[in-house]
Amino acid sequence: MLPPARIPEGGNVMNGVNAKKPSSRLSYLRSEERYAYAFIFPALASLLVFVFYPMLQALIVSFKDFNLISPDSEFVGLSNYIELLKDRDFLDSLLHSFHFAVVVIPVQTAIALGLALLIKRKTWYAPLFRTVYFLPVVIAIGVASTVFRLLYNNDFGLLNTILNAVGLPKIAFLSDPQAAIYGVMLLGIWKSVGFFMIIFLAGLNNISPDIYEAAQMDGASPWDSFWRITLPLLNRTTAFVVIITTIDAIKISGPIFILTGGGPAGSTTTATFFIVEKAFEEMQMGYSTAAAFILFVIVLAISLVQMKFFKTDVEH
């Protein structure tokens, strides 16, 4: 990629046949530039108005004792932040979010890659499975969560009926605080794995078959090919998948609202759920905004570390 052309004030940088009429060339580029700004403007304006301005306002609110419906509020300095770092419920909610992320990121990414490798094979049934695996992605999360609520029911749900029939112990995903977060993970993975499978499939299709053929000639086993060719060449795809999964995982909220309501006994209250509850149920806007900023800083830090980790100097 070339850096944008820079024209020194009044200078002539064109030293070729095109440099006959420098002033018109210059004004052409200037008008190009104007158009560029015009094109950027709508996106930039909406970012400024709908993202950065509210963020700035939110930052201010996070230093206030701000009740959602009250017109009066006073600055309390860092006390929201200090209180949050001592709030057991908030720390627990962060822990739940990370527990969720730490399990979902590797498991979901591995399954997505595995499925992509399976359906990449050119068989007559591959398109069928591609559709089946992708189907959960297009189902509304509200509907999926409601259905999983029924499936998970301890005594009457399909899941436990099947477990019971094959002689396995029941899992009370909805009422056992130890199990509940795994129930949410299962729903989350089932819901999103198809999407990342498609992303991986695209990545796999970008790897030239010649490389595999060459490796085969040199006597590489499929196992070697996977570790030495597929994975390294998928680096950028994997980076994308992992970073997006991380963000999705940390801001998980849809299934929590419908499937578990943060329960049982607070065991699935993730950070985002905590923030929404505090803000709109308990109306403590300042407090919850401060919590949102703490989460923001954590996510920012994680994203930066991940990008450093996946950084590669090789362009494919």
Binding site: M1, V51, P54, M55, A58, I243, I247, I250, K251, S253, T272, I275, V276, A292, F293, L295, F296, V299, L300, S303, L304, M307, K308, K311, D313, E315
Partner: peptide, 24 residues
């Protein structure tokens, strides 16, 4: 091609922003 640190930092910031925007 080498990406500048700033670009990476900005990308990170944007990704994190997505999260915050989702919350609010």
């Amino acid at each position: 091609m080498r990406k500048s640190k700033l670009v990476r930092a900005m990308t990170g910031l944007l990704l994190a922003l997505t999260v915050l925007a989702g919350c609010s």
